[in-house]
């Protein structure tokens, strides 16, 4: 139970053991743990960043939707306005066309009346001449008295 040369053997063993454990366990393991720590920190940071970006994107998306809704409402309002305008125009057109048609019809009717009157006048002249001829046979020259008769008929 005293210090012996075993001491030297143990010191050498100790030195080798320290070297071995340093090389094969401590260095790789602390390295790995540091790497892992860094990776976890990076991952958490990335997750945080992703969350932030997602929030931003969501915000943007809501804004887009809001804008789109506003635009749609605007377009709808415009379309309604335009539709009302078109209907209004069509109504005006129809009214104008109707009036035009009425005017044209009236004109035609007047023309027809006029034409009927003319033909009646002509026929009356003819009939009158014929009747007068029959009445004053031979005494009246159709040519000589034609103008006179026409004048009479004109006064009808």
């Amino acid at each position: 139970m005293s210090i012996t040369a075993t001491l030297i053997g143990q010191m050498i063993t100790f030195a080798i053991l320290v070297w071995f454990i340093g090389k094969y366990l401590w260095t790789p393991m602390t390295q790995m743990m540091d790497d892992r720590k860094k990776r976890i920190a990076d991952g958490l940071a990335a997750a945080e960043r992703g969350k932030h970006e997602q929030e931003l994107a969501q915000h943007k998306a809501t804004q887009h939707i809001k804008e789109a809704k506003e635009q749609a409402a605007e377009i709808l309002a415009q379309a309604q306005k335009r539709g009302a305008e078109i209907i209004e125009d069509a109504k005006d057109d129809a009214k104008a066309e109707g009036e035009r048609l009425i005017v044209a019809a009236n004109a035609e009717i007047e023309q027809e009346v006029h034409r009927a009157k003319e033909s009646l006048r002509a026929q009356v002249v003819d009939i009158t001449i014929a009747a007068a001829g029959k009445i004053i046979k031979k005494e009246i020259d159709a040519k000589a008295h034609g103008d006179l008769l026409k004048d009479v008929v004109g006064q009808l």
Binding site: T4, T6, Q10, Y24, L25
Partner: peptide, 27 residues
Amino acid sequence: FWVLNLDTLFYSWLLAGVLMYIAYTMG
């Protein structure tokens, strides 16, 4: 002084060997 304690050396080397084995395989 010039004495080697074989039992001490044997068991400490054995345990050092166990440690080395664990360190090596785990590493």
